[in-house]
Simulated scan of single mutants.
Amino acid sequence: MLSALEVCTIVVVGLMVGVEFSVAFVINPILNALPEDSGQRGRSHGGRMLGAVMPFWYIGSLVLCTVWVIAGWQRPGVDLVIIAAALLIVSVIMSLLLLVPINNRGKTWTTENRPKDWKEQMNRWDRYHYLRVVIIIAAFALLATALA
């Protein structure tokens, strides 16, 4: 049973890392290269779509790590899972304090109502997101190492 939990946790966190990595290094660069306001409209749509899903994914990943720690308390590698869970907590706090406020504004923007500094705000979101991606990649690597 514990093995199934470990694999499930790694798959869930790994998929989350893959989505966030692709947003940072594939989707947003594509959107930024689109002409006129197409990129901003695409980012607004992505903010609405992923903004609805990602909170559950982040919290779900953290819950799975917590259950892994509790169920595997006496097993080798649990210290790595604790560190991974701590990194996921950092990513959630960072999201709530830095990324979500920008995303909540950006997902409502249209060409008629967006602020003049919308590009600057999107660039700030990107910088915070790069850091978050590094944090969750580290958490994923620790989980994989704990299983090995």
Results as ranks from 00 to 15, higher is better:
residue 5 L to M: 12
residue 8 C to M: 15
residue 8 C to A: 15
residue 9 T to N: 14
residue 9 T to Q: 08
residue 10 I to V: 14
residue 11 V to S: 09
residue 12 V to H: 05
residue 14 G to Q: 13
residue 15 L to T: 13
residue 16 M to F: 08
residue 18 G to I: 06
residue 19 V to M: 07
residue 20 E to A: 11
residue 23 V to T: 08
residue 25 F to D: 10
residue 26 V to T: 08
residue 26 V to G: 07
residue 26 V to P: 04
residue 29 P to V: 00
residue 30 I to S: 05
residue 32 N to S: 14
residue 33 A to K: 15
residue 33 A to V: 08
residue 34 L to N: 03
residue 35 P to V: 12
residue 35 P to I: 10
residue 38 S to H: 10
residue 38 S to I: 07
residue 39 G to E: 08
residue 41 R to F: 14
residue 41 R to N: 03
residue 42 G to K: 04
residue 43 R to E: 15
residue 44 S to M: 14
residue 45 H to P: 12
residue 46 G to W: 08
residue 49 M to P: 12
residue 50 L to A: 11
residue 51 G to A: 15
residue 54 M to K: 06
residue 55 P to V: 10
residue 56 F to I: 08
residue 56 F to G: 14
residue 59 I to K: 10
residue 59 I to G: 05
residue 59 I to D: 11
residue 63 V to D: 04
residue 64 L to V: 03
residue 65 C to L: 04
residue 69 V to M: 03
residue 69 V to R: 00
residue 70 I to V: 06
residue 70 I to N: 02
residue 71 A to R: 07
residue 74 Q to A: 15
residue 76 P to W: 04
residue 80 L to C: 08
residue 80 L to K: 12
residue 83 I to R: 00
residue 84 A to D: 07
residue 86 A to F: 06
residue 86 A to P: 03
residue 87 L to G: 02
residue 87 L to H: 02
residue 88 L to G: 08
residue 88 L to T: 12
residue 89 I to Q: 08
residue 90 V to E: 03
residue 92 V to K: 09
residue 93 I to A: 07
residue 95 S to A: 04
residue 95 S to Y: 03
residue 97 L to P: 01
residue 98 L to W: 02
residue 98 L to C: 04
residue 99 L to W: 05
residue 102 I to D: 03
residue 102 I to V: 13
residue 103 N to G: 03
residue 103 N to S: 06
residue 104 N to P: 01
residue 106 G to T: 06
residue 107 K to A: 07
residue 108 T to M: 04
residue 108 T to E: 04
residue 108 T to D: 06
residue 109 W to C: 01
residue 110 T to V: 05
residue 113 N to Q: 13
residue 113 N to F: 04
residue 114 R to G: 13
residue 114 R to W: 11
residue 116 K to N: 14
residue 117 D to Q: 13
residue 117 D to K: 07
residue 118 W to H: 11
residue 119 K to G: 13
residue 119 K to M: 14
residue 120 E to R: 10
residue 120 E to D: 09
residue 121 Q to C: 13
residue 126 D to P: 06
residue 126 D to S: 15
residue 126 D to A: 15
residue 127 R to N: 11
residue 128 Y to D: 11
residue 130 Y to Q: 12
residue 130 Y to I: 05
residue 130 Y to P: 05
residue 131 L to Q: 05
residue 131 L to G: 06
residue 132 R to M: 02
residue 134 V to W: 09
residue 135 I to A: 01
residue 137 I to Y: 00
residue 138 A to T: 00
residue 139 A to K: 00
residue 140 F to S: 07
residue 141 A to N: 01
residue 144 A to K: 09
residue 147 L to N: 15
residue 148 A to N: 11
residue 148 A to Y: 14
